[in-house]
Amino acid sequence: MDNTSNINEANIKSQMRKGMLEYCILLILSKGRAYPSDIISRLKEADMIVVEGTLYTLLNRLRKEGKLNYEWEESPKGPPRKYFFLTDYCEEVLRYTSDAWNQIVANVEHFRQSHDNRPETPIDLQK
């Protein structure tokens, strides 16, 4: 059966992004504290986020999980901003996540290579 018509490229991307987004946010914040609009622009550069609202629900949850915290700071223009930073607990979480990530990437890469090196034509078992 031909399923190519069912492949939704945008959806594949969005599903992948969803899983990565949290890790990416933690990575951005590991470089130093940032306020949401800042995080958004960096995620946009890397094409990691489509709708901005997602970030806010994610930040909300991460804060509840004790991974993030924020502090208010006056901005040069406009209302004060919420600067988010990683908690000590999250620094540890990030280390584990990075380890897990490396493992997953290595494993996925392994599969990818065997996928790329597969024979052009299926093996004829009857021969």
């Binding site: 489509v50 709708v51 609202g53 997602t54 806010y56 629900t57 994610l58 909300n60 949850r61």
Partner: peptide
């Protein structure tokens, strides 16, 4: 369009927690 519709906001993990 930039912020997204509410259904785009849903954070997968919130569902479970």
């Amino acid at each position: 369009a930039r912020m997204g519709k509410p259904e785009d906001f849903i954070d997968a993990d919130v569902k479970m927690t």
